[in-house]
Structure formats: C-alpha cells, structure tokens
Amino acid sequence: MFDAAEGYVTEDGRTIGGVVMEMKNITLRFGGVVAIKDISFDIREGEIRAIIGPNGAGKSSMLNVISGFYVPQEGEVWFHGAKRKPLRPYEVARQGIARTFQNIALFEGMSVLDNVMTGRLNHMKTNIFQQALWKGRAEAEETANREVVERIIDFLEIQAIRKTPVARLPYGLKKRVELARALAAEPKLLLLDEPMAGMNVEEKEDMSRFILDVNDEFGTTIALIEHDMGVVMDLSDRVVVMDYGRKIGDGTPDEVRNNQAVIDAYLGVSHD
C-alpha cells in the first residue's frame, strides 16, 4: 500500500507524503544493556505513526533517539533527506521537532498562557533587553506570537484556564497545556510520549480528537508512544511494535493486529 516512494492515501482519504525521517539500523546501548537493537523504520509526511510495545520495550528510548536526545552507538538517523549529526536541544527545536513528555514538564508556577508562550521562543528574534523595554520590534513580535498562541488556546479549548497557574490544574488539563506548548513551536514533527497515560475515558476521547485535529488542521506529522491499544489502533496510520529492544512488527493497525509475533508479545506464548 505504501511501497511507492511518493507516499500513499489513507482509508479516510488523507494523502501521506514522502519520508520525513528515517531510522537506519539503530542500536542504542546503556553500558552493557542494549535498549534498542538494530531497528529501522521511517516516518512519512502528514502521517500519525505510533510506537507500541510492552513495558521496557525501548519505546521512550526510541523517541529520545528521534528527538536527538540520545545518540545511538550504531545506525543513522536521516531527517529531510540528510544524515543527522548529534544535535543540541535548541538545534532540534529549530529543525521543527517538538515533543511532550511522559511525566509532565511544565513551568508549574507560571500561567497557562506564559507556558504556551515559551513554545514560541524559537520564533522570537529580539533579545532580552529589547523585550524588557518592550518597544517597537519587541512589542510587534510579542503581539504576533501571542496571536499564534491564542489560536492554539482556542484550538485546544483551554480559554477558561488561560490565566490559571499550571500547578492548580488537574492532570488531564496539564497534558493538554503541554500539547499546546509543543504546538506553539509550529513543529513539522510532533513527538508525543504517552499523551493519554493516566487519563479517564472521556479525557482520552478528547485528547484523541485533538491529536486527529492537529494532524488534520495543521498537517503536522505525529509520532506517538501509547499503551492504550484501542487508542493506538484508532488513531494511527502505521504502527511500529517493539519488544525487548527489537522491532517485531511494522505496518497498518490491521496488519499489526494480525501479526503473530505481536500477538505473542502481548498475550504471551505457552512454552510447553
């Protein structure tokens, strides 16, 4: 279905483009522990790509390799047709990659608005002194960035908590604020580390809708890690399945669901 180098068309009629990011034979070790062993897969423009697997399978490590936080000992990461060198975090952000964290990493004492504004940092050209004086270019810049942020606040329906300090928010809303901050960077590739962990059914449904809407409205490519199988199968276009650091499956949700290796990893096999 997606053999063509130019992408494919999904069941619901979206056109998926060419390869944005390609992982080639990635191996990542922590001392003697092999976290990721010889894994290759790609992420295509405009798709929702999920990475799933049991606990300790190496999913978060994989996401950290994609984001450039970990540099694999072996293998290559290709981004937009070029082999990627080790990067500093701000360089990753400038390349158009943004992420959310499994354990929420927001500025607890700051308001939702200020938290989301920090996501615009890469889009600001003025320096700290100009911003402190808030004249001319700095003022115009902040107004423009605020507008982008307000659109995201509207998009994620968090207007009512705009001025609320993050520390006072319930968990589900914090997750949404984190997504808002990531979106504020206007990323080309959005990485979501367990966006629905610890949520109730209603919050999960809301978050799923937001993820689909982000993908649909902004055309953002999304790579996500998620435990909830129902969510993954509904959301994703293609799924990578990992187990003990190895890739045991890769394909559309239906293909993965019928893959014997995946079934064994999830349900266990009898050894008699």
Partner: peptide, 8 residues
Amino acid sequence: VDPRGLRK
C-alpha cells in the same frame, strides 16, 4: 460556522 474538524 467553525470549520474545525469538518474538512474531511
């Protein structure tokens, strides 16, 4: 009024 989510 609001086109969000209705594109498809």
